[in-house]
């Protein structure tokens, strides 16, 4: 069998992967997709301004020539952030003042979502195929819509705002075949990427049909003191509050010593 071909993840640098490949000599019956990450955790600092995450992978067990792989298969690679409920509120005018009057709760919505595809969507794996499979920005919260169509405005607003803030991205032609079965997918890591457990998933399509998929977990963590503070605020809120008070008292007291005025 074929081993994983290139398992490298590149942050901030559009580097070139040194693929340690075991060239397939046994041709299996079913084409498979493989991806790899060089780490299972990415640490970002609070001054993180966004980066490109490069995922390397390979199509294995292909029967055709290496050159044919590119045209035969469509690859989509996604990076999905932690899922949480989102409350979307809509303002309307009440006695001349803008007030949140409607609110809808959308359950299980990814906080961030980035997708890269190997050819323009609309090709072999068309937009609807993707959406039906729950892949792509258009598919986010689509399940909610099937049940309650009147939520369209709210779902649309959620997607629009997250696209604007870079949390949801869709990049066509961002999966490139390097040589033969090897490919490279570029996913965007936005500046405001949420911390937590993300999932990298790769999908392989042929003739508009999903043939294989594979997923890997990827943890995004903040490594600095700001993260320590926000964790303390959540997990040790009483001590955090007391500390905030002590800090304020000390600052006030220091101010009195430094600028003695009576």
């Amino acid at each position: 069998m074929i081993r994983l071909v290139a398992l490298l993840i590149w942050l901030l640098a559009p580097g070139i992967a040194l693929a340690q490949s075991n060239v397939p000599d046994v041709i299996g019956p079913q084409p498979k997709i493989q991806i790899g990450l060089s780490t299972d955790t990415i640490f970002i600092t609070s001054d993180f301004t966004g980066a490109v995450l490069t995922v390397f992978g390979a199509v294995t067990n292909t029967s055709g020539s290496p050159e044919a792989t590119d045209s035969a298969y469509t690859i989509a690679v996604t990076l999905e952030g932690p899922r949480e409920k989102a409350v979307v509120r809509k303002k309307s005018r009440v006695f001349g003042i803008w007030v949140n009057t409607h609110s809808e709760e959308l359950k299980n919505v990814p906080l961030s979502y980035s997708i890269a595809t190997s050819s323009r969507i609309g090709g072999p794996a068309g937009n609807t195929v993707l959406t039906d499979l729950g892949i792509g920005v258009e598919a986010i919260a689509a399940g909610t819509l099937q049940k309650e169509a009147e939520l369209a405005d709210f779902v649309e607003a959620l997607r629009r705002q997250r696209i604007e803030s870079g949390l949801y991205t869709q990049n066509d032609d961002a999966v490139q075949f390097l040589s033969g079965p090897l490919f490279r997918a570029s996913l965007s890591l936005p500046a405001e990427i949420p911390v937590g457990l993300h999932v990298v998933e790769a999908f392989m399509f042929a003739n508009g049909k999903l043939i294989d998929q594979v997923s890997l977990p990827l943890r995004i963590a903040k490594s600095d003191w700001e993260q320590t503070i926000s964790r303390a605020a959540r997990n040790n809120s009483l001590i955090y509050g007391l500390l905030a008070v002590i800090l304020a008292v000390v600052t006030g007291w220091l101010g009195r010593i430094v600028f003695k005025r009576d």
Binding site: I229, L238, G241
Partner: peptide, 27 residues
């Protein structure tokens, strides 16, 4: 002081970094 602790516990909305920065200028 009570309000600060109460907010920290109930709402987790006290930002120490913000507070200290403001205090330094304020004092």
């Amino acid at each position: 002081a009570f309000t600060t602790v109460s907010h920290a516990v109930t709402n987790q909305t006290v930002d120490i970094v913000l507070a200290v920065t403001l205090m330094a200028g304020g004092v």
